[in-house]
Design a protein around this nucleic acid. Structure first.
Length: 777
DNA sequence: CCAATACAGGGGGCT
DNA sequence: CCTGTATTGG
């Protein structure tokens, strides 16, 4: 333990050593906050705190998983096992499931994603016969979401004349009714949306003091990462839970608050000192990630914001190359610049694709980048956008599965009841919905009793409805006897989904079938992992919950070497040696929608700060003079953010448009001052010793590991002990299965599996990610 | 009453 | 460009 702590600098060490009481860590970009959080938890456990009593809330599940792995390395896997770590949403979804009956929900409640919510709202607006141009579903949903995040229930809404007045002014006097109808509809469907997971947790903790007391006593030590991006609802949960013991440690950086648009309240971090008695404040200001050029340039950007905490980020790193600014004529050309620069840099400096990231403001910008990268044969991976699970064909399968778990789930039902087409059209669904509302039952229940209700349906339609019910019920039987993989395979065939897709012989159609196969693989992995964790069969409902709350980042597809493409929002917390921030244009970044108020513009600026500080060595800012937006070519001006950077940190490439493509983008010796060891070249081309890497520096591998956490090339101190050390022939000891011998290894990274022959129980395939193995020979 | 095709309108970041 | 709605044909 001591050896880990001694590797910290003083500012990092203090918060690790403070065991009790409220504390806030203001952590600048790249200052090693994850390290501090990790060690703080490990040290708590080292001092005898039971893992059971620690709650750690992170921003992504991936971050939680990585931290847990690191902690396991320090204190041991069996100790770390009981830690509660995860996002607000996933942790409280778990708690809500076990307490659901108190709130009148079934414990198998569905979690609606924003697509489901939007469809529900659209349906309500249609049923109420309102004009969807005035009652725009997206805006309505956004408003309901902000109500929920501020704990304004329907009742509270109708008790607040100001709110109603505001909606009346916006020509939406029936807002409250829609809110009511939406809440009713979700409740009737046994469903919670994302905001409900927090809202209902608050309801649980306020309405049931004994429940609150139970969780207060359980979570004696609470840690919250990315505190600047918590909303009011999350804030109240944290306050309530930490109220008894006051052992609350929050970490954040006001300069990186980028989620105000979805209700994050920057005041939560700005006012923390007022909220608790005797708050200790710590500041991590030394940046270990980026060159001095980048750190100082980013600081000059933030100087333009008025609202901020007093903090100076500095670094002892080398100056490094200047930030390169590039202009092109069109977005396509911008893409070509990026692709050819990556190509040349890879050649000249023997870099991997994984050293590069392309960050943009909006997902739509990825297309031009993709085209260019494809032409250069540069492998890439897009993060975010339409996530895998949101794709139509996948969501269709998932909705059938959701119905199996919770037949009341109305959004799932209306989505798949007539897909593939089985002759149940809008009119029939309309009749069913009316009946469901009348009898205050779910549509599925109406369908089950279709013979007892006169809905003026003709007998053919009735039969079709009954067939559908019978089909779902047969799936439910299978679900009781088989694992999720078998069921999903069965469902995709029996419903005719796969058949329907096979009709489409286009490449897109083929891709859809492949996607379903990928889903099946994912479920297979999951069920095996679950078997490993619980000793139970892989439960479908847990899989669905994982899926509903998964981020695209959470999915470790492979450890292939690829350029990363993602929005800046998604890049928060990540780092890359080379970063391209593309589309640096007015109206795009800053976004046209956020230039009306100062605070919105400041948020955009913080977003730019986040983008810049992702870069370890080289940042590029690129913009196009015109680009295709909404199918039309539109002119644009360079972003004001470029000008806001002090000129001394910039190098304008401004090449002659005609031939820039054929020239090297950058001078050969531009990287002369770069410490090659920090780039983690696979084959070092330079023998320059690492000048500025000292003992308390985070290891440079961290950068790569963040992208590919279980990279097979991880060096000493690898996060996953077994990933690298296990070979065929090893004798291993397993917690439950006992002694066994490794027969074979397959897969890589997160999917790496070992085939092990156990003395008792025979041959099993275990995902190394989950398996608790000890190598004994 | 449902399915297939033509056409118009709208498009931000995410759990 | 993609989705949601109007139209027309079965």
């Amino acid at each position: 333990m001591q050896q880990y702590i001694s590797q910290l600098n003083e500012a990092q060490r203090e918060p690790v050593l403070q065991k009790e009481g409220p504390m806030i860590i203001i952590a600048g970009a790249g200052s090693g906050k994850t390290r501090v959080l990790t060690l703080r938890i490990a040290y708590l456990m080292h001092q005898g705190v039971d893992a059971f009593n620690i709650l750690s809330l992170t921003f992504t599940n991936k971050a939680a998983r990585e931290m847990k792995n690191r902690i396991a390395d320090i204190v041991g896997a069996s100790e770390a096992k009981n830690l509660w770590m995860g996002t607000f949403h996933s942790i409280f979804a778990k708690i809500l499931r076990s307490e659901a009956d108190k709130l009148g929900y079934p414990s198998n409640f569905t979690i609606y994603d924003s697509q489901d919510s939007l469809r529900a709202i659209s349906g309500i607006i249609k049923e109420m016969q309102l004009d969807k141009d005035i009652y725009k579903p997206k805006q309505i949903l956004g408003r309901i979401s902000s109500f929920k995040n501020s704990l304004i229930t329907v009742k509270a809404y109708f008790n607040d004349p100001d709110l109603q007045e505001a909606d009346a002014m916006a020509k939406r006097p029936r807002m409250g009714e829609i809110y009511q109808a939406y809440v009713d509809r979700c409740f009737k469907s046994g469903a919670m949306d994302f905001d409900d997971l927090l809202l209902k947790t608050n309801e649980l903790l306020t309405r049931f003091p004994e429940v609150l007391a139970r969780y207060q006593n359980r979570f004696r030590y609470i840690l919250v990462d990315e505190y600047q991006d918590t909303n009011h609802s999350q804030y109240l949960i944290v306050r309530a839970l930490s109220d008894k013991f006051q052992n609350i440690c929050v970490v954040g950086d006001d300069a990186q608050s980028i989620y105000a648009f979805r209700g994050a309240n920057i005041n939560n971090i700005l006012n923390f000192q007022k909220d608790y008695q005797g708050v200790q404040t710590y500041r991590l200001e030394q940046n270990y990630r980026s060159t001095r050029n980048i750190v100082e340039a980013a600081n000059t950007v933030m100087d333009h914001n008025k609202t901020k905490l007093d903090k100076v980020v500095w670094t002892a790193n080398d100056f490094g190359p200047k930030i390169k600014v590039h202009r092109s004529l069109t977005d396509a050309e911008e893409g070509r610049f990026v692709a050819s620069t990556i190509f040349e840099q890879k050649m000249q400096h023997q870099l991997n694709n994984g050293h590069f990231a392309i960050l943009y403001r909006t997902n739509a910008q990825s297309r031009a980048m993709e085209d260019a990268l494809r032409k250069r044969d540069i492998p890439y991976r897009i993060y975010g956008g339409l996530s895998f699970y949101q794709r139509k064909e996948i969501k269709d399968v998932l909705c059938y599965l959701r119905l199996v778990i919770n037949p009341k789930d109305e959004e799932a039902l209306v989505r798949v009841i007539n897909y593939p087409a089985r002759g149940i059209g809008d009119t029939t669904i309309e009749k069913l919905t009316v009946a469901a509302n009348h009898y205050k039952r779910s549509i599925f229940e109406i369908m089950q009793n279709i013979d007892r209700i006169d809905l003026k349906l003709n007998s053919g339609t009735k039969q079709k409805l009954q067939d559908f019910v019978t089909m779902i019920q047969s799936f439910q039987v299978i679900n009781e006897n088989q694992d999720a993989f078998y069921l999903t395979d069965h469902v995709s065939k029996k419903t005719g989904l796969v058949q329907e897709l096979k009709k489409d012989a286009t490449p897109e159609g083929m891709a859809k079938i492949q996607n379903i196969e990928e889903l099946l693989n994912g479920i297979k992995d999951f069920t095996e992992g679950q078997k490993e964790v619980d000793g139970a069969r892989g439960s479908l409902s847990e899989f669905l919950e994982d899926v509903a709350l998964a981020t695209d980042l959470d999915k470790d597809t492979s450890d292939e070497d690829r350029v990363a493409l993602m929005t800046i929002h998604l890049a928060k917390g990540l780092e890359f040696p080379h970063v391209f921030v593309v589309g640096m244009e007015e109206d795009l970044f800053p976004s046209a929608m956020s230039m009306s108020t100062r605070s919105e513009l400041e948020e955009e600026r913080r977003l730019f700060y986040v983008a810049l500080t992702r870069a370890e060595h080289q940042a590029y800012l690129t913009y196009a003079q015109s680009r295709y937006r909404w199918g039309k070519l539109t002119d644009s001006e360079p972003s004001r953010f470029i000008e806001e950077i002090d000129g001394q940190y910039l190098e304008y490439l401004t090449p002659a448009e005609t031939n820039y493509r054929f020239k090297p983008m950058v001078d050969k010796d531009i990287f002369g001052d770069v410490d090659k060891s920090k780039l983690r070249l696979s084959k070092p081309v330079s023998s320059t010793p690492p000048k500025y890497i000292t003992d308390n520096q985070p290891k440079p591998e961290a950068a790569i590991r963040k992208l590919k956490p279980v990279s097979s090339q991880a060096s000493s101190g690898a996060t996953n002990l077994f990933d690298n050390q296990l070979t065929a022939g090893n004798i291993v000891m397993h917690e439950r299965f006992g002694r066994g011998q490794v027969i074979n290894l397959e897969g890589a990274g997160a999917d790496k599996k070992a085939e092990i022959k156990f003395e008792v129980g025979g041959i099993k395939k275990l995902l190394l990610r989950f398996a608790k193995l000890e190598v004994i020979g």
